Computed example of a mutant assay.
Amino acid sequence: MKKSFIVLLICIMGFSMFACSTDKVAPGDEGEGEQVNEVEDSKEPVRVASLKGPTSMGLVKLINDEEEKENSSYEFNIVTMADEIVTGISTGEIDIAALPANLASVLYNKTGGQIKVAAVNTLGVLYIVENGETVTDFEDLKEKTIITTGKGQAPELVLNYLLTQNGLVPNKDVTIEFKSESTEVATILSSEENVVAVLPEPFITSAKMNNDRIRTVFDMTEEWSKLQDEDGSSLVTGVLVVRDEFLKDNKEQFDEFLTQYEKSIAFTNNNIDEAAALIDKYGIIKEGVAKTAIPKCNISYVDGSKLVQSLGGYLDILHEANPQSIGGKLPDEEFYYAKE
């Protein structure tokens, strides 16, 4: 049953402590006829997973700081596939995870509310780019082909939303051609003139290093924001979630983790050179690419009421376009966690 459940989550996704103690008795000083009981608390580390890419960039200072401690409370794992996080959360092998925003909603719905989202860690990383000079506004996209990834998932749904809101009918006024990987899109963009594509950072930065004709036409995060009112949603890429069972027994520790996580994200944004070196150190992307890409990755920390506003509205729009992209229904208010 569990295996089938995990497979179902991976299909929907299309992209994604237990505290224990042991008592150790030290041998007594037999010469004095006394035995001293020495109790040593032993806890398993908090297991934190994140996806390789922008959603891990804000973690690197925290990871590095914990590595330098003699006895860290955390075990970090940066993974390349979202299904590794799906499996880990579902089986209880991961306590805290940074993952795509829509996948958090899928997991919440499919696990019956066994996770909570605590913060947005990455706003939009998607951009419309062109190898050429033919597009300056949305009207110029009419009768063009846009190549992208994520059919039926966030990249397509966000693109369709922006096209529709700007007077274009997807797959009528604009042809959308899907590829399986962002690397494939980037290769086509770099090698063919007048190609228009939707790509995330840091793929755009890498592509521009190989071809100086590639330019950014639209920042999709900015275009999304233009369509919202003052209390509207944000374009959200990644969030931080926690297993509810872990949270119940470790609330104080998790709140402290959030405090350190927010500081780590601020470090990444405010110390680009040092952060880029750490991003390279942990195998996320190369230092040279990271230096240019960090400001464009919208690495953020959003929690509390702003989290509900930003993420809730975003999920609402995805739900209207494709309910299955967020697990079939909008999460209820228990989905959101706020530290005290």
Rank of each mutant, 00 (worst) to 15 (best):
M1E: 13
K2V: 14
K3T: 12
F5M: 13
I12G: 00
K24N: 14
V39Y: 14
E44G: 09
V48Q: 05
A49N: 03
S50R: 04
L51V: 07
L59M: 13
V60G: 01
E68W: 02
S73Y: 08
E75L: 13
V79M: 08
T80H: 08
M81S: 11
G88A: 09
E93D: 15
A98K: 03
L99K: 01
N102M: 03
K110Y: 06
T111D: 09
I115P: 03
G124I: 00
Y127A: 03
L141T: 01
K142R: 14
K142W: 09
T145L: 06
T148A: 03
T148Q: 08
T149H: 04
P155M: 05
L157S: 04
V158D: 01
N160F: 09
L163T: 04
P170H: 04
N171H: 07
F178G: 00
S180H: 07
E184D: 12
A186T: 06
T187C: 03
I188M: 13
P200T: 13
M209W: 01
R213A: 14
I214K: 00
R215K: 12
T216Y: 04
T221H: 06
Q228R: 10
D229F: 10
E230L: 14
G232Q: 05
L235C: 05
V236L: 08
V241I: 11
E245T: 13
E245D: 15
E245A: 15
K251D: 10
Q253E: 12
T259C: 05
Y261H: 11
A266C: 02
N269L: 04
I272V: 12
A277I: 08
L278D: 03
I285N: 02
V289Q: 03
V289C: 06
K291V: 14
P295I: 05
V302S: 01
L307P: 00
L307K: 02
G313D: 07
Y314K: 05
I317F: 04
E320K: 15
N322D: 09
G328L: 09
P331A: 06
F335L: 06
Y337R: 09
Y337A: 08
